[in-house]
Design a protein around this nucleic acid. Structure first.
Lengths: 274, 274
DNA sequence: CGCACTCTTGACGAGTTTCAATGTAAGTGG
DNA sequence: CCACTTACATTGAAACTCGTCAAGAGTGCG
C-alpha cells in the first residue's frame, strides 16, 4: 500500500526487497475520512504516526480569534511526525483537505521496523530532516517573498513533492485545494490569492483549472519564485530509481519528461493515481 | 561548561550525575568568533554539531537578490541540528549575532554519549522536537500576526527560552540584537520594527534599553501576542528542577519570580552569566 | 575626535486587506 | 427537470498596514 512512501524514500536510499516488505507491513490499520475533518487535534495525546495514502491533509494552527495558518501540506507518501511520541501532547492539529485514506502506525510497529532495518531508519531520518527544511523554507517564503513570488514558490514545491511520489504527469499535477486554503498557507487573503493566481495565469506561468495545475515553463516559474530546490535534498543516489520499475534503470532516454529543468535528480514522471 | 544545555534538558528529563558528566565531556573543542561571522554556510558539508555556550547566533537564508530571513535564533544552551549528518549539505547558514563561544561536537562524540545514556538520547529528542515546534510557531507568527503581535510574540518566546537556561533575571533578559536583525527575523523592515517597538514602549508593554529587555506585565504582553507557551513543551517532570540546586526542591515558596504568569513550569529565575 | 553603526523620524507610495456584491458550478430534493 | 442551496471563484472600491526613501540624531569604539 505505501508505494508512495517507498518511492519517496528511494530518492534517498536504495531499499532492499526486505525493506520494502517491512514498509508494506506498516500500513495495517487503514482509515478513511471525508474532507475537512481533523485527524488529530491540538492538545491530543498522539497514539500513532499517520501515513497519508490518498488525498491531501495539512498541519494547521488556529489563533484564539479564529485566524488560521496552514503550517504544512501532507500529500500521499507523507508521514506525520514519525517521532511525535516523545512529546506529551500535540501543539497543532492535522486535518484532511480532501477525502483521505491514511494508515495509523502504532509506535511499536514503527520501532520494530526501524530496529531491524537500518536503511529504513536512515531513510526516515532523511524524511524528518527534509520536513524540517521545508518548514524553514516556508518561514523564508512567508517572511520575505511577495505574494506573487510566494505563490509561485509554493506551487514549485508542491509540484516537485508530488513528482517524487509519482503523482505528476508531465508538467501537471493535482492541486485539490481551495484558494482559501492556499491563502491560509501563504499568509495572504483568499481575495489576494485569487488576484495573484490570475496574474500568474495571464503571465503564462501557470494553467490552473479543475484542481489541476500545469506549469508550462518550469524554469520561468522557478525564476519568479526565486526557487532553489536544494532544500528538498533530492540529490542522493536513489534519486533516479522508480519504485515500480526493476532495480536496473532502463538507461538511455529518460522515462519521464522535463527532468533537469526542476532539479538535479527528481525522478521520472508518474501516473496519476496508483 | 554546557551548564545551560544541562539546565534546559532538565526541563524535560531528570539527568543523573553520570549523564551530566557525559554532557560536560561533549564541550571539548571550544571555538570563539566575533559578531557577524558565519559558523557554517549554505552548501557546506556539516562536520560537527555546534553547541552555543555564550552569545547569540542565528540560522538564516539569503535570497538571490539579497533579502535575508533569519529562520531562528540560537541562545546559550542551544544545539545546532543534532542530526544534521544525515544530509549531504547545509541548506542554510548559521552566523553569530554577537561575539560567540561555541563547542564543536564531532559526530562520534555525540553518538558515543547517546549510545551509553538513554536519558540524554530522549532529552536530545525532546530538544529537536521543540526546535521543530518553534519553527512551526514562527510560520504562524509571520503568516498571521500583525507587526505588533509578531514582535510581542517573539519577545515572549525569547524571554522564556532564556529563562529556561538561567539567563533571565526577574522580568528582564538580554536582547543583544539590532532592530535590523529583529526585522529580518519577523519579516518586517527595520523602520517598522522601530515604530512597533516604540508603540510597545509607550503602551507600557516593554522596557528596552542597552540591549536589555524588561517585561513589566508578562500577562499583558502575552495577551497582545496571542501567546500560548504550549508549543515549547515545558510541561514535563523536570520543569521545576534547577540544575545547580540539590535534587530535592526547597518546597514551599517558589525560588524565582513570576512563574505561573509565563507558563505551567518555566523554572525559577536565574543569574545573568554563569 | 571622528568614523561607523544603529536608532529615530517624516513624507509618501505600494501592496495587501477588508467589505461587499456578483458569478459560477455542483449538488439536493421535490 | 427545475427551484433551492451551498461552496468556491471573481470583481470593485476604499482603507490601512507596512515598505521605501531619505535625512538626522545618538552611541560606541579606535
Amino acid at each position: 500500500m505505501p508505494q508512495r512512501l517507498i518511492r519517496k524514500l528511494e530518492h534517498f536510499v536504495r531499499l532492499s526487497g526486505g525493506d520494502k516488505l517491512a514498509l508494506q507491513g506498516l500500513a495495517q490499520k487503514v482509515r478513511a475520512v471525508g474532507a475537512h475533518e481533523d485527524i488529530i487535534r491540538e492538545g491530543d495525546n498522539p497514539l500513532h504516526v499517520n501515513l497519508i495514502l490518498e488525498g491531501w491533509a495539512c498541519r494547521y494552527k488556529q489563533l484564539a480569534d479564529g485566524r488560521r495558518q496552514i503550517i504544512s501540506f501532507f500529500v500521499p507518501g507523507d508521514l506525520c511526525d514519525p517521532h511525535v511520541f516523545v512529546l506529551r501532547q500535540m501543539d497543532h492539529s492535522i486535518g484532511s483537505l480532501t477525502p483521505l485514506r491514511f494508515a495509523q502506525i502504532p509506535r511499536e510497529a514503527l520501532l520494530g521496523v526501524t530496529d531491524r532495518h537500518p536503511r529504513i531508519t536512515r531513510a526516515l531520518w532523511w524524511e524528518t530532516l527534509v520536513t524540517a527544511a521545508v518548514q524553514r523554507e516556508w518561514t523564508v517564503n512567508i517572511g520575505q517573498r511577495s505574494a506573487l513570488e510566494r505563490m509561485a514558490h509554493l506551487l514549485c514545491e508542491l509540484f516537485i513533492r508530488l513528482r517524487c511520489v509519482g503523482l505528476s504527469e508531465g508538467n501537471s499535477c493535482p492541486l485539490p485545494v481551495t484558494q482559501t486554503e492556499l491563502a491560509d498557507a501563504t499568509g495572504l487573503t483568499s481575495v489576494h490569492v485569487n488576484r495573484t493566481l490570475q496574474e500568474m495565469r495571464s503571465a503564462g506561468l501557470i494553467v490552473l483549472r479543475s484542481k489541476t495545475l500545469t506549469i508550462p515553463d518550469p524554469a520561468a516559474l522557478q525564476k519568479v519564485a526565486l526557487f532553489d530546490a536544494d532544500y528538498l535534498h533530492l540529490e542522493h543516489e536513489g534519486a533516479h530509481l522508480d519504485a515500480n520499475e526493476p532495480e536496473e534503470l532502463p538507461n538511455g532516454s529518460t522515462p519521464g519528461t522535463s527532468g533537469a529543468a526542476w532539479t538535479h535528480g527528481g525522478g521520472g514522471s508518474g501516473t496519476q493515481h496508483g
